[in-house]
Write a protein that binds this DNA or RNA. Sequence first.
DNA 1: GTCTATATGCTGATAGAC
DNA 2: GTCTATCAGCATATAGAC
Lengths: 212, 212
Amino acid sequence: MISISAQSEQLMQAFQSGFEQSSFSNGERQIMLHAVEVFSRKGFVGTKIKDIAQSAGFSQGYVYTYFKSKEDIFTRIAALASGGAGRAVRYAAQLRGTAIERIGWLTEAFLSPDSLAMQHWRLMLLLSSATDAIPDEAKRISKERQAEPIEAFIPLIIEGQNEGDVVQGDPLMLALAYFSMVQGVGLARLQTTMPLPFPTAEVVLRLLRKNG
Amino acid sequence: MISISAQSEQLMQAFQSGFEQSSFSNGERQIMLHAVEVFSRKGFVGTKIKDIAQSAGFSQGYVYTYFKSKEDIFTRIAALASGGAGRAVRYAAQLRGTAIERIGWLTEAFLSPDSLAMQHWRLMLLLSSATDAIPDEAKRISKERQAEPIEAFIPLIIEGQNEGDVVQGDPLMLALAYFSMVQGVGLARLQTTMPLPFPTAEVVLRLLRKNG
DNA sequence: GTCTATATGCTGATAGAC
DNA sequence: GTCTATCAGCATATAGAC
């Protein structure tokens, strides 16, 4: 049984999109922070500049002091968010421990019901659905970074196979299975408000574990 | 190894949302069919009535002959689409075969790269993201039917456990794990255009199979 | 730094012609 | 059955006041 550890907490920080820490001016960060929340509830087209401004406590026109357009806000958010998963995998890869342990910590971070982790999945969803209605630039960036987590995960799988903890098989296919599952759990969590016995990290690891 | 069978093909028909077969008048069906496609690309707010009309080869105003509003179109689509997964599970449950066999056929139908199956996942995605921007009635209906596939799947799991093919454990948790995974693969497929070794039914079944 | 006012364009929905 | 014309409302982005 894997328990929430110091490693997992550090990992979650890497996972999260990092709007807070970024080097923005005050108004800029304030607007970004609220824009993330509104966009993830209403989508790109459904979000009106007025919604973001009101949420952040500014007037509608003030938003244009910091951002050129609605597309601009969205694209900057997409750029920050789409780096999260890859960052988390790279962070996990360089922790000390066996490969399967590190994969376990990573999985806990991904599946955390923490609100910032959930926000990540909401944003990923946004970037995957209604793709003809989101800015091209945002799409480009998110597509560009899409392979990052998978590529960084493959060495971990190979290590795990060499250590005898991970099943044999094409590492790329195993990585895709892993991320499909993790993403699916993230999505499932978003779809319901009821407290249900969602798959734990241990269950997800059954996909990879030898003698699962 | 499970191969595409007569069972799987029948199953896919149950899975698919059934806009074609439904008892609509000609213009009505024509519009619905195109509306599904446009909505799934542009989302609810991003889709303009003109887009649907043009796609179906009608004038903008003509759409209102059959549909009261944009919400009306979307809600009717949501109603048809949100029944698909439950229908497929119920169909699978009453096939002849061991539980794990029937689950295998079902999984093949869910993971089929068939365009109508993909459309199902695109619509599910639409109903799960930007939820503050889709009609309340559509949300209500889709939420109402959300539990159907899981409820219908649980007896299959229990059967499989009794037959010794499925791992022990809370059947609800196993069902949630299964649907998370299936959904995750559907989503992963939508996210990329490249031909990648996406998890097959056999890989998904590792989550459930005893001595996987 | 922050707000108000406004121009400009688009969209949903209706009415009515053919 | 199908289209054209049109209205009323709203949203983005800008200009300029304080």
